[in-house]
Computed example of a mutant assay.
Amino acid sequence: MQFDPQGEAPEDLSHAGSVVDKAIEYMIEQGIDPISIASALLGGSLGMLARSMDDRAVAGVLRSALASVEAGELAEMRRASEAEQAANP
């Protein structure tokens, strides 16, 4: 697995993200509630992290995710998504 110059993201992250996006689209089409989708993905993600990292490293990943939320990154994504939906009804 090759890492980016900052040593943060594996080169196959884009591919994995695309696969997850397709899985989410499929579950939405199946009428699965968004909170159920998110909960299942989070549980699966934690399971994957637990198999590949120690608890301290997992906690670091979770702290990084929390910092992104607190910095408003999710709100920015939400606004962009809403703007896209408004532009393409």
Results as ranks from 00 to 15, higher is better:
Leu49Ile: 05
Asp55Met: 14
Tyr26Phe: 11
Arg51Gln: 14
Glu25Gly: 02
Met48Asn: 08
Ser45Asp: 10
Gly60Ser: 08
Pro34Thr: 01
Met77Leu: 14
Ile28Asp: 08
Leu62Lys: 04
Leu49Glu: 01
Gln30Arg: 07
Glu70Ser: 08
Ser64Pro: 00
Asp33Val: 03
Leu74Trp: 04
Ala23Ile: 09
Ala83Pro: 05
Ile32Trp: 01
Gln30Tyr: 02
Met48Thr: 11
Ala23Ser: 04
Gly7Arg: 03
Gln85Pro: 02
Tyr26Leu: 13
Asp21Leu: 08
Val69Thr: 05
Ala65Pro: 07
Leu46Ala: 05
Ser64Thr: 13
Tyr26Met: 07
Leu41Lys: 01
Arg51Tyr: 06
Gln30Ser: 05
Met53Asp: 04
Ile24Cys: 00
Ala23Glu: 12
Ala38Gln: 12
Ala59Gly: 08
Asp4Tyr: 11
Glu73Phe: 01
Val69Gln: 09
Val19Thr: 09
Ser68Val: 01
Tyr26Gln: 12
Asp4Leu: 03
Phe3Thr: 10
Ala50Lys: 09
Val61His: 02
Ala40Asp: 01
Val61Gln: 08
His15Val: 14
Gln30Glu: 12
Ser81Met: 15
Pro34Glu: 00
Ala80Phe: 10
Gly43Tyr: 06
Val69Phe: 13
Met27Pro: 00
Arg63Gly: 05
Asp12Leu: 12
Glu11Cys: 08
Ala9Tyr: 15
Ser14Ala: 15
Gly31Lys: 01
Ser36Pro: 04
Glu25Pro: 03
Ala23Met: 14
Glu82Cys: 02
Arg51Asn: 10
Ala50Asp: 13
Gln6Leu: 14
Asp33Pro: 02
Met1Pro: 13
Asp4Trp: 10
Ser52Lys: 10
Gln85Leu: 14
Met77Asn: 13
Ile24Phe: 07
Arg63Phe: 06
Ala59His: 15
Ile24Asp: 01
Met27Phe: 07
Gly7Phe: 05
Ala50Phe: 10
Arg56Pro: 00
Ala75Thr: 07
Leu46Ile: 05
His15Asn: 14
Lys22Ser: 12
Ile24Gly: 00
Ile28Ser: 09
Gly60Pro: 00
Leu66His: 04
Ser39Glu: 13
Ala80Glu: 15
Gly72Trp: 00
Gly72Val: 02
Ala57Thr: 15
Gly17Tyr: 13
Ser39Arg: 08
Ser39His: 09
Met27Leu: 15
Ala71Trp: 01
Ala83Met: 01
Leu46His: 04
Arg79Cys: 02
Ser45Gly: 15
Lys22Glu: 14
Leu62Trp: 03
Asp21Arg: 10
Ala75Gly: 08
Gln85Trp: 09
Met77Ser: 11
Ala65Val: 05
Ser18Asn: 14
Ala83Ile: 07
Glu11His: 09
Leu49Pro: 02
His15Glu: 15
Gln6Glu: 14
Ala40Tyr: 02
Ile35Met: 10
Val61Cys: 06
Ser52Met: 10
Ala16Leu: 14
Arg79Pro: 00
Asp55Ser: 15
Ser64Tyr: 14
Gly72Leu: 00
Ile37Cys: 02
Val20Asp: 01
Ala65Arg: 09
Glu29His: 04
Pro89Ala: 15
Leu41Ile: 03
Ala23Phe: 07
Ser45Ala: 11
Arg56Trp: 02
Gln2Cys: 06
Gly60Gln: 11
Ile32Leu: 13
